[in-house]
Design a protein around this nucleic acid. Sequence first.
RNA 1: GGAGGGGUUCCCGAGUGGUCAAAGGGAGCAGACUGUAAAUCUGCCGGCGAAGCCUACGGAGGUUCAAGUCCUCCCCCCUCCA
Length: 389
Amino acid sequence: MNREDSPQNQESRDGGFGFTLLRKDKGSEARLGRITTPHGEVETPVFMPVGTQGTVKSLTPEQVFGLGSRIILSNTYHLYMRPGHDLIRKMGGLHRFMNWDHPILTDSGGFQIYSLGALRKITEDGASFQSHIDGSRHFISPEVCMDIQEALGSDVMMCLDECIPYPADFAYAERSLDMTLRWARRCKAARKNEHQALFGISQGGEYGELRRRGIEELVDMGFDGYALGGVSVGEPKEIMREITSEFAPMLPQEKPRYLMGVGLPEDIVESVYHGIDMFDCVMPTRNARNGMLFTSHGKVVIRNARYRGDDAPVDSACSCYTCRNYSRAYLRHLFIAGEILAIVLNTIHNISYFMNLMRQIREAIVKDTYRAFRDDFMSKLTVTDPENN
RNA sequence: GGAGGGGUUCCCGAGUGGUCAAAGGGAGCAGACUGUAAAUCUGCCGGCGAAGCCUACGGAGGUUCAAGUCCUCCCCCCUCCA
């Protein structure tokens, strides 16, 4: 890797990328770790708020950091389309551009190959997109993808992959997997800045033999971390659980393991149990904007009539800014009135909830009580909460 | 006092003989959201348990097989002229 010799290294604050496995829970596969990046350290298991367009929607970077976030996710495809990676490069990179001087992971655009299915075409060479913004045509190959992510200057780059939908038949899943593996090889060959970490992504749909072979090949190639991709694309929960429980342990012990796009609090708790270290999901931010709040007693749809005159905080067990200062009745009023502050306060709460959850998860691992923590968490899901009924 | 326009389901507002429990908004109510084309999307929105029946288009009466739609009278609102 020659990190010590790279010119970028001398400019960096803390050196290159690294992962230290600090502890493994005795009763489960759960792990406690530390990721080191040029922009700071991250304790794992970690949740990365999603900031697709170079912003965690509705929050300032100071707020995001203040809530406990130490790494965020941003997006190659979206920043390439607008404002353009060359502009961001000229502006000194994404960290400076968005005023976030902490770690950033950039997704590759692989998810847009899935989510913008109607607007793209895949060939062996890469993916051509018709811009969802102005209809113009663009082409992203593994090489272009690396160039964009290096222009953005993210701390962790993701390989370009094809995230296939669910369900997908075996033949398609296999063909796609093999292409994704060739793309991974090309990404690795094309990257110029060894200072930015590069993660490989497992695909193969729901097919165990494909997952297994894919992971073996990725590990042979050698990446700084490994992701399980192709989940949270509409598959039944059991399938996601199977993939996670069976293949997280197959990923190298000494590298971070990232479950892409996950997820619900219970999905996170369950996945940590099987040895996942990193998560990202739009859920806390998007659902906040849609009026759904995560709480220790289940979800709260703040616009519901039952909260009209409710003077209690959203979650009495939460000490976030929103819960310390505002009633459900006020939050409901703001949301129904379409006020911007509703979105801000909701997002503060949801991100706060996820950060607290991750903190509790780490504490449980430290205490070697993760299994009990997880069992307790899951049992509460099925209990009807008195406070909320 | 004269001339004209209008009163529609919670609100606004379409509808000028049957295809009308009545378009479309809004409000209200509920649901969805998992590497963000998302401050988005979906459903419900007179009553009764379904086929169906009942109650509804200012009020009363009438014409017609059939009226929110046509006629008569009445009540109320708006504009202009005195």
